[in-house]
Simulated scan of single mutants.
Amino acid sequence: MKGPLFYAKILLFGEYGIIKDSKGLAIPFNSYKGALKSVQNLSGEAKKSNESLAKYYTYLADLDTDLVSFNLSDLKKDIDNGMYFDSSIPQGYGVGSSGALVASIYDKYAADKITVLENLTRDKLLVLKQVFSLMESFFHGKSSGLDPLNSYLSLPILINSKENIEAAGIPSQKEGKGAVFLLDSEQVGETEPMVSIFMNKMKNEGFRKMINEEFATYTDACIEDFLKGNVKSLFGNVKSLSKIVLKNFKPMIPTAFHKVWEKGITTNDYYLKLCGSGGGGYILGFTEDYEKAQKSLQDYKLELVYRF
């Protein structure tokens, strides 16, 4: 048995903001992927994955919801027969490893599933997002459902608000100098503690004001620029966003990268922002000149995501 492939995702803009109902833009990232597989003799990572799926089965069996039901006997049988999730998506890196797993389980075991081929109305997208939010909460404690949705549809998704999401068209890549890239912090980040820090900060009136007036404003402007292909304006807004994140989200930025972050803003060689919840994993970079950014960041591992 080998299931269809589900890809990683990158939340280009909107980390933390989408928890508080501002805009977000997520795109599939096809360099990493995963699929359900089965083997007779489990060992190593496959065995760990199979054991995790057994716990996940219990979670799904206990879900009390009218939104979705699963073919649980098939799922149980396949897990007992050595099913695991074979994935190249790094865990704790902010690129949706649990999202791809959730999408693959929904695809194979959901009864009356909403398929990718039907006319995806806004209502259907919202139902899918709610279902995925329930399913992914097993991994993170609280999930927006966006990562699995992105992985399941393999389409860019624009989040206008919690109740308003749509599939989005993004400008096709050009062979220009500019780029979006991933910078590997070479340390694993955990979503739950980072979200807890954010929620505690939100109790502070000054922080809430900054989120609503500065962070959300620049995030929305970046999304609009990106979708319309206004590259010049985009970099100005990304620089402002990078400064706001450095000043207000320090705990989410690995300490070793505070100076690297600042260097980008000072030199204009690149601008960094969080990729997912932060705390490790990937950091997202934007540059008007990828070669220059590579030289400036020569001590680090970079991965290209998108060309301008």
Rank of each mutant, 00 (worst) to 15 (best):
F257K: 03
V39H: 04
K301C: 03
G276F: 06
D78S: 09
T255Q: 14
K263T: 15
Y282D: 05
A110M: 03
S133C: 02
M83P: 05
A46S: 08
D64V: 09
N200M: 07
D299Q: 12
L297W: 04
L11K: 05
K9Q: 12
M83K: 04
F85M: 02
L42H: 01
K239C: 10
L128P: 00
S98V: 05
K113G: 07
G279K: 07
K243I: 15
K47H: 08
S161I: 10
D78N: 15
Q294G: 03
W261S: 04
E205A: 12
K9N: 13
G285S: 02
L120H: 03
G206Q: 09
G280C: 11
K273Y: 00
I19Y: 08
R208P: 06
N268F: 09
V245A: 05
V231C: 10
L272P: 00
K108G: 00
S104C: 06
S87E: 03
T217D: 14
F13H: 01
K295D: 13
M210L: 01
A216G: 11
K2H: 09
Q298W: 06
F29R: 06
D225M: 08
D64M: 10
E262Y: 07
N164E: 11
L53E: 03
I253C: 04
V180A: 03
E186P: 03
S144Y: 03
E190T: 10
N41D: 05
L42E: 00
G264A: 14
L304K: 13
V260E: 02
V127E: 14
I283A: 06
E190N: 12
D78C: 04
A179I: 07
E214R: 14
K47I: 11
K113H: 08
N119G: 12
E205S: 13
A167D: 05
K37I: 11
G176Y: 01
A103T: 06
N150W: 07
E166N: 06
D269G: 07
L125H: 04
E163P: 00
G276E: 05
K20N: 15
S196D: 12
L227Q: 15
M210V: 05
S296N: 12
G178M: 01
V39C: 06
D78V: 04
Y306C: 04
E118S: 13
M199G: 13
V102Y: 05
